[in-house]
Amino acid sequence: HAETTLRVANWLPPTHPIMKDMVVPWGKMVEEATKGKVKVEVLPAPLGAPPAHFDIAKDGIADVTYSVHGYTPGRFALTDVAELPFLGNSAEAISIAYWRTTEKYFAKADEHKGVKLLSVFVHGPGHIFNAKRPIKAVGDLKDLKIRVGGGIINDISKELGIVPIHAPSPKSYEILTNGVADGIMFPSESVPFFKIDKALKYMTEVPDGLYNTSFFLVMNQAKFESLSKDEQAALMSVSGEAFARLAGKAWDAADAAGMTAIKAAGIEVSKLDDAAMAELKKRLAFAEAKWLDKAKERGVDGLAALSYMRAEIAKLSK
C-alpha cells in the first residue's frame, strides 16, 4: 500500500486559529498516527468560496475541507443545535459534547451524506460588541445595526429588534469603521483577529454565549475508503472527539488572548446581569423550540439529544 496525500482546501489566512492551531496540527497528528503513510498537504490558495467547501470535499475537488454549517442555510438542521444560545463558556466542552451528541443521536439522520464526517466543533461563546452604547438590558439592543453571520443568530437578532447587517466577516473592519454597522456579534477571539478593536467601544458579555457557530471537518468519501482499515482507524483516532477537543481548546486559548487584547484596547466590558439574562432567556426560548421541531422533522428525538448534550457540557465544564 503506497503513501497517500490528503489535500486540504483552505479559505482562511495561515495565521487564523483554525489553520494554525487546528488543521495544521491535525495534519501532523495524522502523519504520526499513520506512521507517515498518510500525508496532509494544505492547498496554497482557496478553491472556492467558504460555502462551497462541503461540496468541494464531496465532489473530490479536494480531499479534506472545513467550513461553517450555517453558510448554506436550509441544508443542515440538526447541526443548529450547536448554535443555540446559552450552551456554555468553554468551546472545548461544547465541541466534545457536540461530537458525542452527533455520533449518538444524529448519525442515522446522516446530514453529512456524501462525505466522511471527520469532526464537528464550535468556537467560543458569542458576545455583543458595539460602538454606540453600553448594553445593560435587552431593550438596549433595539435598532442597533449589528453585523451577524448566518444561522440561528439571524432569528435571534430579528426577535431582539436588532437591524441585521449581512457582510462577510473579513469586511467587518470596513463596515464598522464606515458606519454601515454599529456593532457585531463575535467570539472574543475575532475582535483582535479582524483588527476591529479600535472600531468598538463596548463589549457585552453574555454568560454561556448568545450564540455559537457550528463547524465541520469532512473528507471525500471515496478517498476515505481508499485508505486501508488501519489507516482509517488511525485517521479517526486523531479526528472525531480528538479533533473536537483540539479545536475547542484552541478556540478557548484564542478567546483568552482576545479578551486580553479587548481590555488592552480600552473597550468597556460588562456582563449582562441576572435580571437581563432572565429576560433574554425568555425572549430566546423560541430558538430551542424551533430546533426541536426541526429535529422531529428529521426523525430525531431532539429533547433527548439536547438534554444529553447539555449534560455532557456540564460534565465537561467542571
Partner: peptide, 8 residues
C-alpha cells in the same frame, strides 16, 4: 470533480 468545479 472537474464538472463540479465548473458548476461551483
Amino acid at each position: 470533480p472537474a464538472m463540479a468545479m465548473v458548476a461551483q
